[in-house]
Design a protein around this nucleic acid. Sequence first.
DNA 1: ACCTGAACACCGTTCAAGT
DNA 2: ACCTGAACACCGTTCAAGT
Lengths: 194, 194
Amino acid sequence: MQLHRDDVVDGALAILDQYGLADLTMRRLAGTLSVQPGALYWHFPNKQALLGAVADRILAPMDRPVVATDWSGALTELAHRLRDCLLTYRDGAELVSSTYASRLTTNKGRERFSSAVIRAGMPRDQAELAAYTLLYYVLGHTVDEQSRMQMDSAGALADPAGEPADATDPTARFDFGLQLFTAGIRHRLGADAH
Amino acid sequence: MQLHRDDVVDGALAILDQYGLADLTMRRLAGTLSVQPGALYWHFPNKQALLGAVADRILAPMDRPVVATDWSGALTELAHRLRDCLLTYRDGAELVSSTYASRLTTNKGRERFSSAVIRAGMPRDQAELAAYTLLYYVLGHTVDEQSRMQMDSAGALADPAGEPADATDPTARFDFGLQLFTAGIRHRLGADAH
DNA sequence: ACCTGAACACCGTTCAAGT
DNA sequence: ACCTGAACACCGTTCAAGT
């Protein structure tokens, strides 16, 4: 039976989640789809384009509407949702991060960030810069968080009183930086809320 | 004559700057050093370790003292210096960014960030979180900035009224996010400076 | 239109053996 | 101690040829 674009993305996502980004090769993917490596190049021009499609799939939940009504609530919600998307699949953060860099994913998160900041009353060009800033933070933080998770689950034997080991809850750590960011926006808006 | 660790790093840095990270392979590096690929594995256990040493070399200027006396001036200066280090070599930001993730570089920037924030009066654990936040921003921004530079210098022919093309000066864009961050810190410190 | 077969031009890493 | 020679086990991509 026929191999469709979506089947290829499905297969790629399965390999990613089970074996990680390093093992997501065109040859291996072809193997699990019971097809020759060259067949994949009829559906995608190259590996980067395939990874872009995988990233889009991972980020699909970013399109759903947001419940918060105030701008800072909406921004916090969107940032958390982006992090959740990235944490859903193994190496999801790393994959999306590198795909953002090569600019062949429709960067859904960033657009929604910026419109939330525009709704807060910031001029469009500044709002876009702010959205980038938040995006860099979420990606950087989550890549780091996820790579630590994998290091821990691998070498749970190690760490004989190495460092304080950051006992704090990862979500609380994430919120700290997020609050730093929203406070910065609020200051920029001149909202002396008192 | 003998091949030393530093010669290997020198050669790697030269390839990086001229041909980019994708062309920085062990075999090619061995070639420019007039040595067999296997020889490199006497000096470094693997490629990641070599890249870590290259990253450390790129970040060497981060050890120099800072001129600003106030914490926000010091932080701004350090952030700019980190960006400058990353922009000095082709693909420098990408290399350092991926090396930070695999945690085998002495992350000089982050430590200096956090001690600046501690000097501002923030408790150590919070200051470290703040330092990470700033680090993610600088890395994310600079990777993006540098990859755009390369896209522009490659396809200067393209861009027929594609987007507004972000006419703003890259340094000004960088400063915007940086100010968002320092404002966030200032707010956290409760410094109602008036 | 969609895929196979087979090749091209590479990779990182290991390791006996040489000097 | 430091390196060579040669192999092992892979990569992404292309493309004539098949159906």
